[in-house]
C-alpha cells in the first residue's frame, strides 16, 4: 500500500513537471497504460482476501482517478500558459502610426461654396449656373451698366470680341435667370468663377469666385435682405456675429449697400484685422434696380427683389485666417492638406 502512496507522490511531481501535452500523454500512458507500475501491484491481487481485494481495487481506482485529474488539471494549465505566452508574444506598440489610407481634401474655396450652398438650400434657394464667357448685354447692359457708364471703370474686363467677355460678376446669371423665369418669382444663388483685369497680388486675383444671390417676388424688402444676410453670417462666422449696412453704389441695385460683419477676432472692439473699426467688409448687396427688372420683362411696380454678391475668396480668407489670395491658385499641397477637416 505504501507503494501506491509513494507512486502517487512521484506521479504528482512528474505531472507537474510536464511542460507540454506530449509529456503529459507519456505520463498518462505510463501510469495508466499496459506497462503501468500498477500492474505489479495488481499482480498481488490473487494473493489477497476478498476484503483486501476490494480495498486494493478501490485504492487502485482512486489512484487512477487521481492521476486522470492531475493530468487534466495540468493539461488546462499548460494550455492557459500557452495562451498567455501567445498573448505576450503578440503584444505590440499601439503608439506606432496606424495604417492610414490616404485621404485628400476639397479645395477651401469649394468647401466654402458648398457650405454657403447648403445654407441657402436650407432657406429654399436653388443653385443656378451660367456661362463664364458671357455677352456684354448680360454682363453689363441689362444690369443697368450701359456703354460708357463710369461703373465699367470699377471692373475692367477681359473682352474676347466687341460684345463677348469673361464675366466680371456672377450677376450676369441674374439676367439669365430673370429672362428664363418670365415674370415669375425667383430664389437662387449662383456660385462661379469671374474675371477682372487685376494684377495678381496678395489681395487681388484676375480670376476669383463669387456667389450671387437673387430673390424676386411681390413683397420683397430691404429688411428681408438684412435678415437673410444676418442669418448667413451667423452660420458662416458664428452666432454672435452682427452685420451692418453702409451706403454704397452698384448700377444694378438701388438702394445699394456695403455689408460689414462684426470682427470675429475682437468682436467689435477694434484690432489690426478689422483695421480698428470693429467691422469687416464682406459683401455688396441691394434692392434690384427697377431698370434691371423692367429690361428682363418684370413689372417693377409690382415685383421687387434683392440681390447680393459674396466674394468667396474674401469669405474663405476671413473664415480660415488666410492672408494671401494667391494661396488658392498655387495649390501647395501643404496648404490644401490643412482643409481635410469636415465642418
Amino acid at each position: 500500500m505504501a507503494d501506491l502512496e509513494m507512486m502517487l507522490q512521484s506521479a504528482q511531481e512528474e505531472i507537474k513537471a510536464c511542460s507540454n501535452q506530449n509529456e503529459l500523454n507519456e505520463k498518462k500512458a505510463y501510469y495508466l497504460g499496459k506497462k503501468s507500475p500498477l500492474n505489479d501491484i495488481m499482480k498481488q491481487m490473487a494473493t489477497l482476501s476478498i476484503e483486501e481485494k476490494k480495498e486494493l481495487g478501490q485504492k487502485v481506482n482512486a489512484f487512477k482517478t487521481k492521476i486522470e485529474e492531475l493530468i487534466s488539471l495540468r493539461r488546462t494549465e499548460i494550455e492557459q500558459e500557452k495562451i498567455l505566452e501567445k498573448l505576450r508574444n503578440e503584444t505590440i506598440d499601439v503608439t506606432m502610426p496606424g495604417k492610414v489610407l490616404q485621404t485628400g481634401s476639397i479645395h477651401p474655396l469649394n468647401k466654402v461654396i458648398n457650405e454657403l450652398n447648403s445654407i441657402f438650400l436650407g432657406m429654399g434657394y436653388n443653385v443656378a449656373e451660367g456661362p463664364e464667357v458671357e455677352i456684354d448685354k448680360y454682363n453689363f447692359e441689362m444690369l443697368n451698366v450701359p456703354v460708357g457708364h463710369p461703373a465699367r471703370d470699377m471692373q475692367d474686363s477681359f473682352y474676347i470680341t466687341e460684345d463677348t467677355l469673361l464675366r466680371t460678376q456672377t450677376s450676369s446669371v441674374q439676367v439669365r435667370t430673370l429672362l428664363e423665369a418670365k415674370g415669375k418669382p425667383i430664389k437662387i444663388v449662383c456660385p462661379g468663377r469671374v474675371y477682372r483685369r487685376d494684377d495678381d497680388d496678395a489681395t487681388h486675383s484676375h480670376q476669383f469666385m463669387q456667389i450671387e444671390g437673387l430673390v424676386v417676388d411681390e413683397n420683397i424688402t430691404l429688411s428681408d435682405l438684412k435678415g437673410t444676410l444676418q442669418l448667413v453670417v451667423e452660420k458662416m462666422f458664428g452666432s454672435d456675429r452682427k452685420i451692418r449696412f453702409r451706403p454704397s453704389f452698384f448700377p444694378f441695385t438701388e438702394p445699394s449697400v456695403e455689408v460689414d460683419v462684426s470682427c470675429f477676432k475682437c468682436g467689435g472692439k477694434g484690432c489690426p484685422i478689422c483695421k480698428k473699426s470693429g467691422w469687416i467688409e464682406i459683401l455688396g448687396a441691394g434692392m434690384v434696380h427697377p431698370n434691371v427688372l423692367e429690361m428682363a420683362g418684370y413689372d417693377s411696380t409690382k415685383m421687387r427683389g434683392f440681390a447680393f454678391g459674396i466674394g468667396v475668396e474674401r469669405v474663405t480668407m476671413l473664415r480660415y485666417g488666410i492672408d494671401d489670395i494667391r494661396n488658392f491658385y498655387t495649390d501647395d499641397i501643404r496648404f490644401l492638406n490643412q482643409f481635410k477637416k469636415g465642418e
Partner: peptide, 25 residues
C-alpha cells in the same frame, strides 16, 4: 435710398422673404 441712408440702415428690421419656395440641387 436717400431716406434709408439718412434714417440709418441700422433701423431696418431683420426679416426673411415670405415665399413658398423649395430649394434642391
Amino acid at each position: 435710398e436717400e431716406l434709408a441712408r439718412m434714417h440709418g440702415y441700422d433701423n431696418l428690421k431683420m426679416t426673411l422673404p415670405a415665399m413658398q419656395h423649395v430649394g434642391e440641387l
